[in-house]
C-alpha cells in the first residue's frame, strides 16, 4: 500500500492534480454552503429569520431553538440512546447477513441463484402496502413497542445486497475461492476469512448507508411504538416539529406564536446530523486506502 502511494506521486502531473483539487473542492463547497446557512439559521432568533431570511451567519444570535429542543434534556438523551442501540445492533446484524447472502448469490455452482435473486428483488417492486403490513406486525406478530421491531423492520435493503454481490464478483477473484476450496475450506470459512476482508471498502460504504437508514428512520417508530422509552431521536424531533406546527390550529389558550418554528427545523437537522458527521471520518479510512489482494492470499 505504501509503495502504491509513492508510485502515484512519482508520475504525478501537475495539471491533472490541479483539476482534481479544484473540481472536488468546488463540489464540496457547493455542498457545504447551504449547510453553513442552516447552522447559522439554527442559531438565529426566530424573528430575524422570519424578517430577514437566511444568511451565512446569525444576524441575531439566539439559542431559542436549541433551548426548545432541550426543554426536557432527559427525553433527548434517552432518544439518542435508543437511536444508538438500534443503529449499532441493526447495522452489525444487517451487514453480516447481507454480505453472507451476497456471497451466496454470486456462487456460480448454485443452480437456483438467479431464482433466489429474483425472490429478493421482487420484494422491492411489489408490496402489500401499509395496512396489511401494520396489521400483520402489530396484531399477528405482536411486535409493537419492542426494540425488535425497530431493528427488524428497516433491516434489509435488497439494493444493498445486490450491490454487495457486484462488489464481491468484482473484487474477489474466482480462482482464489476455487483454490481455497481445493485446500478444503468450507463456504462459511471462505466467506469469513477471504470475502469479508477483501470487500472492506464495499462493506464500509454499505455499512454507512445502513447505519444512516437506521439513524434517520422515524417511520418505524411512528407506526409501531407508543412508549416514550422507545422513541428514537429522529422521531422525537419529528414529533416536536409537527406539534409546533399543528397544535396552533387548536390553540386558543397557548402563546403558540412565540415558539421557534423555522429555526427549529434547522436546529433539528443540526442535532440529528452532528453525531454522524463526527463518526463518519472513522469509517472513511476504508475508502481512503486501497486493497491489495496479495495481502489476503498469503
Amino acid at each position: 500500500m505504501q509503495s502504491m502511494r509513492d508510485n502515484n506521486k512519482l508520475n504525478a502531473s501537475p495539471v491533472f492534480t490541479t483539476i482534481s483539487y479544484t473540481l472536488v473542492g468546488l463540489i464540496a463547497l457547493i455542498c457545504l454552503i447551504p449547510f453553513i446557512v442552516l447552522v447559522a439559521g439554527s442559531f438565529s432568533s426566530e424573528t430575524s429569520v422570519l424578517r430577514d431570511g437566511y444568511w451565512f451567519w446569525p444576524r441575531e444570535l439566539s439559542l431559542d431553538a436549541y433551548q426548545f429542543i432541550f426543554r426536557y434534556p432527559g427525553d433527548v438523551l434517552q432518544a439518542y440512546k435508543v437511536s444508538l442501540i438500534i443503529t449499532v445492533v441493526g447495522t452489525a446484524v444487517s451487514l453480516f447477513i447481507s454480505s453472507m447472502t451476497a456471497y451466496v448469490l454470486c456462487r456460480k455452482e448454485l443452480k437456483y441463484r438467479n431464482g433466489l435473486t429474483f425472490f429478493l428483488f421482487f420484494t422491492t417492486l411489489f408490496s402489500g402496502g401499509l395496512a396489511p403490513f401494520y396489521i400483520w406486525i402489530s396484531k399477528n406478530l405482536h411486535m409493537q413497542n419492542t426494540y425488535l421491531v425497530l431493528i427488524l423492520a428497516p433491516m434489509f435493503n435488497v439494493m444493498y445486497i445486490l450491490i454487495l454481490r457486484a462488489f464481491i464478483q468484482g473484487s474477489v477473484p474466482e480462482p482464489l475461492i476455487e483454490s481455497a476450496k481445493i485446500d478444503g475450506a468450507g463456504d462459511l470459512r471462505i466467506f469469513l476469512q477471504m470475502v469479508l476482508p477483501l470487500t472492506k471498502p464495499a462493506l464500509a460504504s454499505i455499512g454507512v448507508f445502513t447505519a444512516l437508514a437506521y439513524w434517520n428512520d422515524w417511520w418505524t417508530a411512528m407506526m409501531f411504538t407508543s412508549k416514550e422509552s422507545l422513541v428514537p431521536l429522529q422521531y422525537l424531533l419529528y414529533k416536536m416539529l409537527s406539534s409546533i406546527n399543528l397544535t396552533g390550529a387548536m390553540a386558543q389558550h397557548i402563546q403558540a406564536a412565540d415558539q421557534p418554528k423555522e429555526t427549529f427545523k434547522l436546529a433539528m437537522t443540526v442535532i440529528a446530523t452532528g453525531p454522524v458527521v463526527l463518526v463518519f471520518p472513522f469509517v472513511q479510512r476504508y475508502f481512503v486506502s486501497g486493497i491489495t489482494i496479495g495481502a489476503v492470499k498469503g
Binding site: 402489530s138 396484531k139 407506526m223 407508543s226 414529533k239 416539529l241 409537527s242 406539534s243
Partner: peptide, 21 residues
C-alpha cells in the same frame, strides 16, 4: 391514554381502527 402525533394522524389513525386493536 395514547396519543397519535399530529404528523402521524393520516397514516396511523385509520390503521389503528383497521387492525381492530
Amino acid at each position: 391514554l395514547n396519543y397519535i402525533g399530529w404528523g402521524d394522524v393520516a397514516a396511523k389513525y385509520p390503521l389503528i381502527l383497521a387492525s381492530g386493536e
